[in-house]
């Protein structure tokens, strides 16, 4: 076993332990846990038997197994960036709505207090 394989195994092991901890504290759901578990076991398997990767690369028409990993990683990373971008945009809009809504409510209250409407309502 080469040093790089050892490092990858160790990394995968740490990630899987962390995943289990996250599942226990219910930070992630069971399907998400299984998905990530499968992914990291797959990564470990490919690292263990590099022939699998080369065969896969041959199957999809890519020269080397390492190239296949890079292409797939790029695709996944681009997709994740897109997802993060969309989520950020959505959250920015939500924060804006919350801030504006609080500001309007506070101003409304101040106006009503000035007009004495609140006191009248309290009497009722």
């Amino acid at each position: 076993m080469s040093i790089i394989q050892l490092i990858i195994f160790l990394f995968v092991l740490i990630v899987i332990v962390k995943l289990i901890k996250r599942l226990r504290t219910r930070d992630i759901s069971l399907p998400i846990f299984l998905l990530w578990l499968l992914f990291w076991i797959g990564a470990a398997a490919i690292t263990w038997k590099t022939v699998i990767l080369d065969r896969l690369a041959d199957l999809v028409g890519v020269g080397r197994g390492a190239d296949l990993v890079i292409y797939c990683s790029l695709l996944v990373l681009f997709y994740l960036i897109f997802r993060i971008f969309v989520r950020l945009d959505k959250q920015e809009k939500q924060i804006s709505e919350i801030v504006r809504s609080i500001a309007k409510n506070n101003c409304d209250l101040a106006v009503r207090e000035q007009r004495g409407e609140r006191r009248n309502e309290d009497k009722k």
């Binding site: 801030v99 504006r100 506070n106």
Partner: peptide
């Protein structure tokens, strides 16, 4: 005036 305040800069 009518004064209104955003908690953060939007």
């Amino acid at each position: 005036i009518y004064y209104c305040e955003h908690a953060v800069n939007l």
